[in-house]
Design a protein around this nucleic acid. Structure first.
Ligand code: SF4
Ligand code: SF4
Lengths: 154, 154
DNA sequence: GCAATTAGCACAAATTAGATGCGCTTTGAG
DNA sequence: CTCAAAGCGCATCTAATTTGTGCTAATTGC
């Protein structure tokens, strides 16, 4: 299906929150207090992002995750790539099919190369969608502003 | 996942074959003789394409399917839309989630609107990829030429 | 009449994604 | 030094989605 996974969504939300908390380490708990997401799954997602160098982790009390790079350098492409693997529009581009001997049609496939080009462009779109451009273009209200109406403020 | 379904692939292959057989009715059997695809599933796919007006069907002996419109008017977008439903990058755009009460995050979602724009552009890409542009830009060898036992294009 | 071929609907099998269980390691606070 | 907060790793279970079949009916040309 032509749809992002929930994991990717969780990842983006987490990253946005980290951007709000500029530079500080934020815990999974904190993220899930802000957004109603399944804690454990978000934790798995963050781990994957850490493994892929999108975020940095700090263990122990007071630890958590923080952006490993500038919000201008982190792109939707990085997140998708880290959480779903490189996008492969056709089956023959996905590693899964290759293990099963590959596609039977491939030798005479008329759509393969053209669809590769489509994927190429899609990929470029994702790579050009930076984390900053996300928050900049949306109706996003930064944390402290929102927290003004919230009961607790550290 | 950011990937086209096999059904979409089957559909595109079938359409390309129909384009080759310009105007004639081609049966599912014939398509599966040309490409090694699961016959019954391809049949289901073609039925869906017919319901959505992408191809025309003719029942009975000598019947089959043929393009319902010009190859310039049939797009990847049509096929995807007919076989996978309109692409919904985020969960909140998909009808499935709406039935379950929608997304909890939505009221304060910072990524919703920006990602909608990404989907918009993706959708445009698909709509601008016509069937003709597919065969025109690939290394596709039309049917009769290939049947003339030419292992390589000149 | 008969064989070829699509239509319709349901269902089982396979694959993928989502969510948890559980124990271990690290680290700052007290 | 102790302890609670956090992350790490891996296995596993469940739910959702996709893919492939079964079966029967309706058409159509010869
Ligand atoms: S070779 Fe063609 S048919 Fe086979 S997976 Fe690739 S695109 Fe699809
Ligand atoms: S509202 Fe935000 S979090 Fe919820 S589904 Fe839409 S994009 Fe994802």
């Amino acid at each position: 299906m032509l749809q992002l996974t929930k994991r990717t969504e969780y990842g983006m939300l987490a990253l946005v929150h980290m951007l709000d908390r500029d530079g500080e380490y934020v815990s999974v708990r904190e993220i899930c207090e802000r957004y109603p997401l399944p804690k454990r799954t978000v934790a798995e997602v963050l781990k994957d992002l850490a493994r892929n160098g999108v975020v940095e982790s700090q263990r122990g009390a007071g630890g958590g995750y923080t952006l490993a790079r500038s919000p201008d350098e982190i792109t939707l492409g990085h997140v998708v790539s880290a959480l779903e693997g490189a996008p492969a529009l056709t089956s023959c581009e996905s590693a899964l099919v290759l293990k099963n001997g590959g596609c039977e049609v491939q030798p005479s496939c008329p759509i393969r190369s053209p669809i590769h080009r489509v994927r190429e462009r899609l990929w470029q779109m994702l790579e050009h969608t930076t984390l900053r451009s996300l928050v900049a273009s949306g109706g996003h209200v930064p944390l402290h502003t929102a927290a003004a109406s919230a009961p607790h403020a550290p």
